[in-house]
Nucleic acid binder design. Structure first.
Length: 354
DNA sequence: CAAACGTGGCG
DNA sequence: TCGCCAAGTTT
């Protein structure tokens, strides 16, 4: 304690770690509090890296089944590196932000090629899909190093703890410095996970549970009487609405699927043919083959920066021949395994129902 | 620095 | 129903 009665940064870390020792969430990619991964165990950096990438902008609940499936199918980074990209993208289908999956492939191959994960923050940061947050998290959690880990949870906890009045994203620099000041030398990995657990269970975005918070006595935001006001954020822009069309072309228990271009929306993913709504503001509505098209239904889907109304059209009769361009006939009874992103999975459901 | 980039859950 | 939000990175 200082003379004024407030805890120092070191004390905040002690209090938080003591809380974490009792309340740490039990997660499949995590070692128990106080237990660093066994050093020569080369499987652990792989698990930490994979979970961290899956968790980028994605909830724990959504990640769990994907993480389990990946670890079952590809227990090591070498196994993942040896897998065809197509299979990895298909296994990622539904998790979103597919550039992550493409980077997972590149990263696994780079890591296998160099004989293991780099064990420095700078080395990790150089890997595809590993940014500032993820590099710090792996360095701290998998390699036991002191690193300053700042994700949206930490940002929120720190903004409240110090009642940061500056708005995001400008406040990031100050928040990072404040996080640095309270990050301990020892157990930095546990400290980071403790901050994230606190943010996800107690110091939540809406209706924080300050009565349960171990940092409540130290929290300037709590003292203002309205901790939920932090962090200060700029209002969001309204999202535009786009329209487009997807084409359901079937023949004898199979449907025609394409692979999307390697960059941009749903890049590299298997999909139904469409009219280019993702490249233009709206689709051009022109079917890839002539025939009697009928409306199967409309799918509404919200993306990060626009909403889409996708019209699903199907041929009245069986297709007589494949449409022009690359593609494949996919058996309807194994459509689940095609790895369609959620938008096209919805469209397929629509076509099969209508 | 702003924009692109998915999806599901919750109030 | 709808806006907000989540263990961000890349361009």
């Amino acid at each position: 304690m200082t003379a004024s009665g407030e805890r120092t940064g070191t004390d905040v870390a002690s209090v938080l770690l003591a809380w974490y020792d009792r309340h740490a969430r039990d997660l499949p990619w995590r070692t128990p509090p106080g237990h660093s991964p066994p050093d020569p165990d080369r499987a652990w950096p792989y698990r930490v890296w994979l979970s961290e990438v899956m968790l980028q902008q994605t909830t724990v609940a959504a990640v769990k089944p994907y993480f389990a499936n990946f670890i079952r199918r590809w227990p090591t980074v070498e196994a993942l590196a040896a897998a065809p990209e197509e299979e990895i993208l298909a296994a990622w289908a539904g998790l979103g932000y597919y550039s992550r999956a493409r980077n997972v492939v590149k990263c696994a191959r780079a890591v296998a090629g160099r004989g293991g994960f780099p064990d420095t923050e700078a080395g990790l940061r150089a890997l595809p899909g590993v940014g500032e947050y993820t590099a710090a998290a792996i360095a701290a959690i998998a390699f036991g190093q002191r690193a300053v880990v700042v994700d949206a949870n930490v940002e929120r906890v720190v903004a409240r703890l110090f009642a940061v009045e500056e708005g995001l994203p400008a406040a990031r620099k100050a928040i990072r410095a404040a996080t640095d000041a309270i990050t301990p030398q020892a157990r930095a990995g546990d400290f980071a996970q403790a901050m994230m657990d606190l943010g996800s269970t107690i110091c939540t975005a809406r209706q924080p549970k300050c009565l349960l918070c171990p940092l409540s006595p130290d929290c300037a935001g709590q003292r203002t009487g309205d901790p939920a006001r932090f962090p200060i954020k700029a209002p969001k822009k309204a999202k535009p609405l786009r329209t487009g069309t997807a084409w359901w072309i079937a023949r004898g228990g199979e449907v025609w699927l394409v692979r999307r271009p390697g960059t941009g929306m749903l890049g590299g993913m298997r999909a139904l043919p469409d009219d280019g709504w993702s490249a233009r503001a709206n689709g051009n509505g022109v079917p890839p083959v002539a025939g009697q098209w009928q409306m199967a239904g409309v799918v509404r889907h919200g993306f990060t920066h626009f909403a889409l109304e996708l019209h699903v059209m199907k041929l009245a009769d069986q297709a007589s021949q494949p449409p022009p361009g690359e593609g494949e006939w996919w058996p309807l009874d194994t459509l689940e395994t095609a790895g369609l992103p959620t938008l096209f999975a919805k469209a397929a459901r629509c076509a099969l129902a209508g």
